[in-house]
Computed example of a mutant assay.
Amino acid sequence: MLKCYDCLEKSKENEAVGICIVCGKGLCMEHIKQVEFPMKGGYPLPHLNLKKDLPRMMCRECIDSILGEDFCV
């Protein structure tokens, strides 16, 4: 089974429930965060926003690095 990378750094063992889409770390429920990005349509109507945001799973480190510390999840 895949283990949570952040937990292993703290000498704990928890099973991962998902993977960060940016860095690929396995993460447990305590460390994984769901981020919803607004998505735009594609060809032939690229200017339209989709009706529903798509959820993405990320680690806190990648959220802070990419979206900034002020981004609230």
Rank of each mutant, 00 (worst) to 15 (best):
C28H: 06
G26M: 01
C62N: 05
I21F: 04
P55F: 03
M1A: 08
K12S: 06
C28V: 06
P44G: 12
P38Y: 13
E36I: 09
I32G: 02
V35K: 10
G24L: 10
G18E: 04
G42H: 10
H47W: 15
G42K: 05
N14I: 11
N14S: 11
L48Q: 07
I66F: 02
C62T: 10
Y43E: 07
F71G: 08
E9L: 15
G18D: 02
G68Q: 09
L54G: 09
K51C: 12
A16V: 04
N14H: 13
L50I: 12
I63D: 04
D6A: 04
L45K: 08
C72S: 02
G26V: 01
C72F: 04
L48G: 02
L27E: 05
G42A: 04
G24F: 11
C23Y: 15
H31A: 06
E69R: 11
K40F: 07
P46M: 08
K3Q: 13
H31Y: 05
P46N: 10
N49G: 04
N14E: 14
M58W: 14
E13G: 05
E61Y: 10
V35L: 13
P44E: 14
S65L: 14
Q34D: 08
C28S: 00
I21Q: 00
S11V: 03
M1R: 00
H47K: 12
Y43W: 14
K33C: 03
N49M: 14
F37A: 01
L48R: 06
E15K: 03
L45F: 06
E9Q: 15
E36P: 03
K12H: 10
G26F: 11
D6G: 03
C72P: 00
P44H: 06
Y5V: 05
S65N: 15
K10V: 08
C7V: 08
G41I: 08
E15R: 00
G41S: 13
H47A: 12
L67A: 02
K52T: 15
V22P: 02
R60N: 01
D6R: 00
C72A: 07
C62A: 09
M57S: 06
Q34T: 13
K33M: 02
R56V: 11
E69P: 00
M29F: 10
E13T: 14
D64T: 11
C20G: 05
G68Y: 10
V73E: 13
